[in-house]
Design a protein around this nucleic acid. Structure first.
Length: 459
RNA sequence: GCGUCGGUGGCAGAGUGGUCAAUUGCAAUUGACUGUAAAUCAAUCGCCCUUGCGGCUACGUAGGUUCGAAUCCUACCCGGCGCA
């Protein structure tokens, strides 16, 4: 018996979307469900005991970030990521593959033909022919977008001699180039920080090893998330590499009997915006024997409106009843879309990231609570919301004017309240979608919700 | 009263003859954010408009020097400090 099993309860007429139950060693998840993002073993701004109050059933932490700090051994000693943060429910960890994308695109990701034991290091300045850089974004552009100051804190990880040694073996020049690149090779990925010179290396086996120590109920195979705008050739190469890594991730997991009894591994499908690649990826990953499937990619609006839609078609080629997780899918419209196509669980930073910058979800579309117009608005964030911020058990909820004031005065309670409200909003939206699937009203619920939600912002 | 230093856009504070409608920070206005290098980032921020290497008004007030002044000179007003 596998540690995580999925049981569908009811399907939509399209034969794709469904409601079901995902059973894990730490409890069941009623799906579709929204998963809280706890990258560094904390949902930013929300105390663990509050998470349940918001309706979250599960959280997902990040391998790369916990490896950097406090280190996977510490988390293991703490009893696993769930125990570490005193979360009693089901947990997930992401593999760190996304960092190949987010760090790599920032630094001008390069792909090396030479593996760990290659004799001739690839010149850092030389464009790689087999697909080339996945990103046209320059380092300078990146700096302007992201701000240098924030990087140093994020990258201030423990210095690891072992990784430096590996990386040095891999490419001596990297040590003195101050890590302007994330370098992908057949064996894995070398990450470097140009601010502090730290080097880190992930391979599928290493990612799985770390995730075993993190101990989540569900974890992901190490993949390469690509820039959605990358060329067909690159997407294909990255996808095939991801498939090879998936096989290795799975093998590494199956070797560990103990972990096999306690943890489930999901394989991640890629393919960018190309239907044939997506199809191939679903078939390949679906046939490998994973416990579940991760819909990989990056579906930010800036990459076009229908990138998610086309990626979702790949789910048709998976074994039926294989649980599906939508990685980084969380805009209300996208949750509807995902649920319609059979995504069971969704994780997304958007409730907390947007919450921290003052964007608040409401039934009538998102608002920016910092805007001047709310200075004397004494109504709740969303009149129809039942969250602890809008409607605490003790009485009247917080008003827009109050939260507006908290943001204006930079009080730490401001992003906390906004994040909590946003999490509740998405959790309960997903829950209502689940209920609508169960009672057969999905389409009408979707249409009425979106009509209202999009009325004031036709995005 | 004498001496001295200083009065710059909402605030703080650069600039000290032309490339200054004026660096920068804060505030303000708006926008962005989809497996978190994010309690972050971006744009705008004197007035007018045909939005342009455009016009106008501006650097305490009033004059002056100069082809040209926020920048130099004179007087006055105001403020800090020192001495009476």
């Amino acid at each position: 018996m596998r540690p995580v099993t999925y049981t569908p309860e009811k399907k939509l007429n399209n034969g794709r979307g469904r409601a079901g139950v995902l059973a894990t060693p730490h409890g069941t998840i009623q799906t579709p469900a929204f998963v809280g993002v706890a990258t560094k073993a904390t949902v930013k701004g929300v105390a663990t005991e509050t998470l349940k109050e918001l309706g979250l059933q599960t959280i997902i932490a990040n391998t790369y970030h916990l490896y950097l700090s406090p280190g996977e051994e510490v988390v293991e000693k703490a009893g696993g990521v769930g125990e570490f943060m005193r979360w009693e429910g089901p947990t997930m960890t992401d593999s760190g593959g996304f960092q190949v994308f987010s760090l790599g695109s920032g630094f001008g990701k390069k792909v090396s033909k030479f593996g760990l034991h290659g004799t001739t290091p690839l010149s850092l300045d030389e464009p790689f022919q087999e697909g080339g850089s996945a990103s046209a974004q320059t380092e300078q552009e990146f700096s302007e977008e992201n701000g240098l100051a924030e990087r140093s804190e994020e990258n201030r990880g423990p210095f690891r001699k072992k990784n430096l040694a590996e990386a040095t073996l891999y490419d001596a020049e990297l040590a003195t180039s101050h890590g302007k690149l994330a370098i992908v090779d057949e064996d894995g990925v070398t990450f470097t920080s140009h601010l502090n010179g730290d080097m880190h290396r992930f391979t599928p086996e290493r990612s799985v090893e770390i995730q075993h120590k993190l101990g989540a109920d569900i974890f992901f195979a190490f993949d390469e998330c690509t820039e959605p705008t990358a060329t067909y050739e690159y997407q294909k190469a990255a996808m095939e590499r991801t498939h090879r890594w998936a096989k290795r991730s799975l093998a590494a997991h199956r070797q560990n009997i103990d972990a096999n009894n306690r943890q489930a591994i999901y394989g991640i499908g890629q393919g960018g915006q190309f239907d044939d690649l997506r199809q191939e990826s679903a078939r390949t990953i679906g046939d490998m024997g994973f416990d579940g499937f991760g819909l990989g990619g990056s579906f930010s609006k800036k990459y076009g409106k229908h990138s998610l839609q086309s990626a979702l078609n790949m789910l048709d080629y998976l074994p039926s009843d294989m649980p599906v997780h939508g990685l980084g899918v969380g805009e209300p419209e996208d949750i509807f879309l995902g649920a319609e196509y059979g995504v069971d669980t969704f994780d997304c930073v958007i409730p907390t990231r947007n919450g921290r910058s003052g964007t608040v979800f409401t039934e009538n579309g998102p608002i920016n609570i910092e805007n001047r117009q709310f200075i004397e608005d004494f109504s709740p964030l969303d009149p129809e919301c039942g969250c602890p911020v809008c409607r605490p058990a003790s009485g009247a909820g917080y008003t827009k004017a109050y939260i507006h004031h908290l943001f204006r005065t930079k009080e730490m309670l401001a992003p906390m309240l906004a994040s909590q409200h946003n999490i509740y909003f998405l959790v309960h939206l997903t829950e209502r979608i689940r209920l609508s699937i169960l009672d057969g009203s999905f389409e009408s619920f979707r249409d009425s919700f979106l009509a209202k939600y999009k009325k004031n912002n036709n995005s």
